[in-house]
Measured scan of single mutants.
Amino acid sequence: TEHYTFHTEEQAQRAAKKFKKQGLPVTIHEKNGKFTLQVN
């Protein structure tokens, strides 16, 4: 499991699309105004 932190939801969504294209499951969590992208 890898985690990436982004300052905006837009950045997180863009990164999520790249991972999803590779067939990886992705979840985004919002915490304290930051967005954490979790790749399993």
Rank of each mutant, 00 (worst) to 15 (best):
V26T: 06
K21G: 07
K21Y: 07
Y4F: 09
K31E: 13
H3N: 09
Q38K: 07
Q13N: 08
T8W: 03
T27A: 07
K17E: 14
H7E: 14
T5L: 09
E9F: 15
Q22F: 12
K21R: 11
K17P: 00
T1I: 13
K21S: 12
R14Y: 07
G23Q: 03
I28E: 01
H7G: 09
V39N: 02
Q38D: 07
L37P: 01
E9H: 11
R14G: 04
T5H: 11
N32I: 01
I28L: 06
T8M: 03
F6I: 01
L37H: 02
F6C: 06
A15Y: 08
L37Q: 01
A12Y: 01
Q13W: 10
K21F: 07
N32D: 12
Q22D: 06
T8Q: 03
L24W: 09
Y4I: 06
L24P: 01
F19V: 02
T27M: 08
A16M: 08
G23I: 01
A15H: 05
K21L: 12
F19I: 05
A12S: 01
T1S: 10
F19L: 09
T27I: 10
Q13T: 07
K34I: 14
Q13K: 12
A16H: 02
R14N: 09
A12M: 04
T8D: 06
Y4L: 09
T27D: 05
A16F: 07
K18I: 12
L24G: 02
E9P: 06
V39M: 06
T27Q: 08
K18A: 10
G23M: 03
F19G: 00
G23P: 01
K18P: 04
P25V: 15
E30W: 08
F6L: 02
A16E: 03
H3T: 13
K34L: 12
T27H: 07
G33L: 02
E2T: 13
N32A: 05
V39R: 02
E2V: 14
P25A: 15
E30G: 06
N40A: 11
A15M: 09
K20T: 10
Q38P: 01
T27V: 10
E9L: 15
V39Y: 05
Y4S: 03
F19K: 01
K18R: 12
V26R: 00
H3P: 08
N40D: 11
E30T: 06
E9N: 07
Q13E: 08
Q22E: 07
H29V: 14
F19N: 00
K18V: 10
R14E: 13
H7D: 15
F35M: 02
G23W: 03
T36P: 01
H7F: 10
F19P: 00
E2D: 10
K31I: 13
V26M: 03
K34F: 11
